[in-house]
Design a binder for these strands. Sequence first.
DNA 1: ATGATATTTGCAAGTGACTTTCAGTAACGA
DNA 2: TCGTTACTGAAAGTCACTTGCAAATATCAT
Lengths: 124, 124
Amino acid sequence: MTRTRQAVLSVLESTKYPLSPTELYNRLKKQKVAIDPVTVYRNLDTLKGLGLVTQLKLHQDGQFRYELREGREHHHHIRCKSCGRIVDLLLCPLKKLTAMIEQETRFVVGDHSLEFSGWCPKCQ
Amino acid sequence: MTRTRQAVLSVLESTKYPLSPTELYNRLKKQKVAIDPVTVYRNLDTLKGLGLVTQLKLHQDGQFRYELREGREHHHHIRCKSCGRIVDLLLCPLKKLTAMIEQETRFVVGDHSLEFSGWCPKCQ
DNA sequence: ATGATATTTGCAAGTGACTTTCAGTAACGA
DNA sequence: TCGTTACTGAAAGTCACTTGCAAATATCAT
C-alpha cells in the first residue's frame, strides 16, 4: 500500500458514485496530490485485482468507472442523458432470467450488464 | 443511395449478428469493394439516422456494432467470452421494471441496455 | 538498520476506435 | 446540363486506455 494507492482509495471512499480514471485524476490534482494519470489507471486495475474495487461500464458512457466494493452488493445504475448524474438502483431482477437464457441458448452465463439511462429530476 | 451505401447495407443484410465498423470494412475489402474505413463509419451513422440500422454496444466489447432494423423488434444479446460469438435473445423483461425504477428514482427512463456474456456451447 | 529483491512510478510512445477537416467527386433536381 | 447539395478519401486529430523502460519506492530477511 503506497502513498499514491492510498490517495486513490481515499478519493473513492469520499464519492457516492462510480468515477472514471480521468475524474479521479482531476480530483487528486485539485487536492495537490502529484500523480501521473497512468498511475491512476494502474492502481485502479490493481485494486480491482485485489477485489477492493469494482470496474463497470455504463450505457452510452465511453469509459470505465470504478467504485468501492466494500460490502456493497451487486447492483446497477441509471445515468442522466443530460447532466451525466449517476444513481444506484437497488434491485437486480435477473436471477431467474439467467436460468432461462442458459436453457434457451445453451451458453453458460458468466456475467450481465444492465444499465438504464434517462433524465434526472433536475433535467426533465 | 450511393454505390458505397448500397454495399454497406448489403453486407448487413447477409449477416445474422451485429457487425462492428471494422468487421464490415474487412468484409467489403474481401469482396474487392474499394471503400475507406471512414466512409463505413459515416454510412453506418447515416443509416442509423434514417432508422434503417440499430447501433449497439455489448458488454465487454469495446466498440459499436450495427444490425439491420428491418422488422426486428427490441431484443438483447449474449456474447461468448471466449470466441466472441454473438446470439440474439428473444425476450426483454424490463417493461415492469422500468416503471418501478421511474418511481424509485424520479428519473424519466429513456433507454436501457441489457447484455449477457458467458461461454457458448463450443467453448465450454 | 542494511542490502537484496520485488513492486511501483513517471514519462514517452503506442493502440484502437472513432471524429473532424478539407478538397475533390458523384448524385439529384430544376 | 448547370448548379446545389451530399458523399467520399486521405490525413490529421481526439480520447481512453496500454506498454516499455529506467528510476524511485517498498518490502523483507538478515
